[in-house]
Design a protein around this nucleic acid. Sequence first.
DNA 1: ATGAAAGCGCTAACAT
DNA 2: ATGTTAGCGCTTTCAT
Lengths: 326, 326
Amino acid sequence: VLAGVSRATVSRVVNGSPRVSPAVRETVEHAVAELGYVPNLAARSLVTQRTDAVACVVSEPESRIFSDPFFGSVIRGVSRGLASEGLQMLLLMVQSAEDYPRVARFMAGGHVDGALMFSLHEGDPLPRIARDLGLPAVFGGRPWTTGPDVSYVDADNRGGGRSATQHLIDRGCHRIATITGPLDHLASLDRLAGFEDAFADAAAPVSPQLVVCGDFTQEGGQRAMEQLLLLEPPVDGVFCSSDPMAAGALRALRSAGRKVPDDVAVVGFDDHEQIAAWTDPPLTTVHQDPDFMGEMLVKLLVTRLRGEPVPEPLVLPTRLVVRESA
Amino acid sequence: VLAGVSRATVSRVVNGSPRVSPAVRETVEHAVAELGYVPNLAARSLVTQRTDAVACVVSEPESRIFSDPFFGSVIRGVSRGLASEGLQMLLLMVQSAEDYPRVARFMAGGHVDGALMFSLHEGDPLPRIARDLGLPAVFGGRPWTTGPDVSYVDADNRGGGRSATQHLIDRGCHRIATITGPLDHLASLDRLAGFEDAFADAAAPVSPQLVVCGDFTQEGGQRAMEQLLLLEPPVDGVFCSSDPMAAGALRALRSAGRKVPDDVAVVGFDDHEQIAAWTDPPLTTVHQDPDFMGEMLVKLLVTRLRGEPVPEPLVLPTRLVVRESA
DNA sequence: ATGAAAGCGCTAACAT
DNA sequence: ATGTTAGCGCTTTCAT
């Protein structure tokens, strides 16, 4: 404005419009650098109705966000994806019920162009909020309420649970248990359904006492395994719905003096490098690719941001990686 | 605007001004709920110059953010603190050098009232950016360049390193090594300085080959310990600058058949519940309180936000927790 | 190619 | 107690 030109011209320069002479562009760029001028994005988004930022909402009351490497990987993927689109990622955490209003207000306030939401529990108000706001949203993990216009990316949890259990059956286990994740979590339910599928395939019944509920943490897995160790006749195979829980189970088994996989075979779910390859013995587990999942989430969100037709949900394949624990 | 009143009145109602009659307030609130009206925060902040949001920038190229529980705890503390102040936390991650411009633009764009910055490495441009912008900032961990107007909260890393090492000396270790964190990290340097302090106290020299560099990860700790195991005469005590590294060191020692603490005593740093109490044997380690640190960071930032005089830097105490590994 | 002017949605000072 | 008005900093027609 002070380099002898009008605001409009400055705006054109900053936004790289072609309708400006190289000479003036030069001058303005100099002035901008000189004065340390920075456009006020709030003002810009007020008129453009865009913010070039997207919210990444993790709804995890017990802050598994930082303890479970799964989130880290997904978020890394998201982060990379958004960066390559020139979008800024805003990570919002919902740790307790009181946080919902603030997060809702934030998203309603036009601070972001869209939202990515993870780890929704049953009855989570976030999907409703996004829908009511008309805010483009993509879910990480199939949400509890789906519809024709909801986009999500999920792993094939059911298929993974099935092949894990199948593997235990194939290797000759007769008393197979499972340690599930929290049951208000669809991924947990799907993995459990896969467990049941494998039994159905084998025309065998699932004994209710062989299904115990964990919470995706190592501690939870250890506690659940200790509980299973009380059973008679003894369990000889366990499918754990997450690698951290499998690590906890291995620990419990070691304390109890059981040999893995000879006395008890253990299968996990996730195939985190940080865990699976490091346990003793190395973990047989279901592989998924959270990093890729993050990138796909971004891809879907970007197509929605462009106003293109709502893309089909994506279900990413999982596969069993056999190591030594089963 | 459409409930028979003017925009100004609506604004007053929404912002809870006392100068409005209960009757009208009622009407307006109804209309607001009816239409699902939500104030545009971008417009508001354009005029108020406030956003009620603060950025929480984690500058960690190797995304230790999710693998090291330290960050999780600090961020939980920050999150709680900000929530109680009615501020929204925006977590921004700087994963690679290309991310700086975007993050800088974001902060310059007036999206936040202030910033919290963590885990700054040597030469990190973030402090400069914040200063040039005049954006109130508080650092988690002493930044490389301090001055009269920089606020930070740090743990007493040096004191912790010293008492950890002192403990090893006291228990009779003669060949004491240390596994440091990345050396472009002031916390690593401080802990190392504490290590050296303890030697100075004992009027003993520090042998350069007994100082090996890790990277704060379990893998790094394991590799470093393997390196130390090659030394003659054998090491009988190790101070590890983080709990994950200590866990890696314990693993390496177990593989090598060394007994802890009898053959080699191990001390960590952090005292993460998730690690320290779970290792085998339980870890003797330096306790710090990242959760509290997060809350203090918020406290300092809030006083700066209010325009009050720049508060003194805070150095939080650390203390050795003796368990079984040393 | 550039400037003038309107307007994005809100708040605040002023007027009633 | 409520309405009117100006203006936050930017982008964008529309003139020139």
